[in-house]
Nucleic acid binder design. Structure first.
Lengths: 339, 339
DNA sequence: TATTTCTATGACAACGTCGACAACACGTGT
DNA sequence: ACACGTGTTGTCGACGTTGTCATAGAAATA
């Protein structure tokens, strides 16, 4: 393997001078610098990060720890967001996945330490509360899409489910809908309560009574093996004599079943029922016809910002708000009309 | 940072003896071994991979290089498959994503080399042909979900689209369907042609004439910004006087629109039309009601096997079949009935 | 001119680990 | 008594890099 020494020999300088060139340090003549750079090119030299780390004990590497099943597959955009940040900032990313096992999680912490990573991004695939066990170590850590149960061990960043649901509800209300159905997410999910509360509160602010709201449970049970009532609930909602003019779905995926229920009853979307989703899970929201109006989970931003925040921590910045939130942008498509 | 030397001091032995204990080498008394292990535990010592790499020039690390947009989000299961393999085999995973830019790709190769990774897994998010440019370096590489254009530079592993489509077609034929519609994937995708050919050939084997097959284009144009004809095509198919009794969809996502088209025409699924998909993109295939019969892309297996194969390469095994294929299992649900 | 400051470079050690080899203790067979 | 093997431990150097310090000449200052 070609090392700094071979480059030094080729350029007729000391290895330290090569080091200076590589790291852009001052006190090298233009002439020497060019000779060294030529040697680097000719030999195809690439610095050895391991050796560098050993000397300087800064690995410039972040570790991503993910939990298990990606229930909402687009959440990998979090990882992409992190990578994009890392990419533009010259960091490298180590990734490991715990499969949800805490024993495995402990092993991952060890692996990360063995590689002397600078910080950890603890990422979950859906918005939830977790109990990360970092052992007795204290590596700078930012939690993404989740928050710690034992209050505020680590800083965290998550989507603003409340604001997203509020915006969607307003959107419907502003278009004249006054009887609105709501099919709830699995209550296991953190988003479920936030979204429902936002819906309730916003409807109330607009003067709707609890009776105008038909709230039904869409799913329950452990994530990945839940019982599914969405189709039945939607059918029931739409069979009422005074049926809602709009249905708000806990997420986009559940909206598929609401579409099918409505169409099976001979109803047209959006003329007879307007429908909105949540998540902007594009494989669904754009495949549905008419395309689904929804609120986009800011996955990419979560990752990007999380990485940036972590970098601040590593550099010793203080963590001011210990938990942050990224907005869910409303994506207007064609599944809603005015009444 | 606690190093091997601090452990040695604490245990009252030489650093080499500690090294022996860590690496499970022989010639250490049980008594010494235990004393060392106690010291390791007490001090929370974790070996420094960088130092180890510098000595032994084996990083025990694989790099994953992914391309851009995850058009089919479940393809991240490839990454999970790789991680699962790495996990059970004590390897670490570096990940980088090229965003489809070849300049970026070159940078990633450099980063990987800088970390002296043992091998590269070149992963694409949908089955396609690529032109990886590894520069002049020769790191062992396995391509997953894609194959090289310039024939067979690297070994590759991909899903068996042909077999999957053949099995699905047989499944329909065995249930008595004789007029079958087919809505084609974007021809840009490698799977498109393989699946269509399998459909055609299998139908022919069963004695169907070309007239019994209604083949329509569902999408075309660049991935991520394609023109979408699925709904129109499905509607047209189902309005024919002699309408097909079954429709085969290029993939699950497109099947959503076929469902909607059928229901909008007042047809019941599967009594009036049977529908099959492809991919087993579960967010869709299980959210549709009735649930969709489809062929599962073996993403996890692709990743797992790819990693294992790469490990063989790194250890100097020969690459016998230069391209492999993993089967697409038929997943039977309830969107098909016999006629 | 003498002294200081600055620029450019090199020598050398150290980071943490492991491989090569030496050393030492303890039998065992001659 | 001796050589020999075998099990156990330690010493030392090397891996590739960078930080510290030294050096030497050039330029600036007194």
């Amino acid at each position: 393997m070609v090392s700094i020494i071979s480059v030094a020999k080729a350029a007729g300088v000391s290895n330290k001078t090569v080091s200076r060139v590589i790291n852009g340090e001052p006190y090298v003549t233009d002439e020497t610098r060019e000779r060294v750079q030529k040697a680097i090119r000719d030999l195809g030299y690439i610095p050895n990060m391991a050796a560098r780390l050993i000397r300087s004990s800064r690995s410039n590497t972040f570790g991503i720890m993910t939990d298990y099943v990606s229930t909402t597959p687009y959440s990998v955009d979090i990882v992409r967001g992190i990578q994009d940040w890392a990419n533009t900032n010259g960091k490298t990313i180590l990734i490991a996945n715990t499969g949800g096992s805490s024993q495995r999680e402990a092993e991952v912490w060890k692996t990360f330490q063995a590689h002397r990573i600078d910080g950890v991004l603890y990422v979950t695939m859906y918005h939830r509360v977790v109990d990360p066990d970092a052992g007795d170590v204290s590596i700078p850590t930012v939690m993404i899409n989740c928050r710690p149960r034992t209050d505020q061990l680590f800083p965290s960043i998550a989507p603003d489910d409340f604001q997203g649901a509020r915006d969607l509800t307003r959107y419907l209300l502003e278009r004249g809908h006054r009887r609105i159905g709501y099919i709830r997410l699995n209550p296991v999910l953190v988003g479920a309560e936030l979204r429902l509360n936002a819906f309730r509160q916003t409807a109330k602010e607009f003067g709707l009574a609890e009776d105008d709201l038909s709230i039904r449970l869409g799913m329950k049970g452990p994530v990945g093996a839940e019982e599914n009532y969405v189709f039945a609930a939607a059918t029931e909602l739409l069979r009422q004599k005074e049926r809602p003019t709009a249905i708000m779905s806990g997420n986009d995926e559940m909206a598929i079943q609401i579409y099918i229920a409505a169409l099976s009853l001979g109803l047209r979307i959006p003329q007879d029922v307007s429908i909105v989703g949540f998540d902007d899970f594009r494989t669904v929201s754009m495949a549905l016809k008419p395309e689904l109006t929804t609120a986009a989970l800011p996955y990419h931003e979560l990752g990007f910002q999380g990485a940036e925040w972590l970098n601040g921590l590593v550099s010793g910045n203080n963590v001011d708000p210990l938990s942050r939130v990224a907005p869910c942008r409303l994506v207007e498509r064609t599944s809603v009309c005015s009444v």
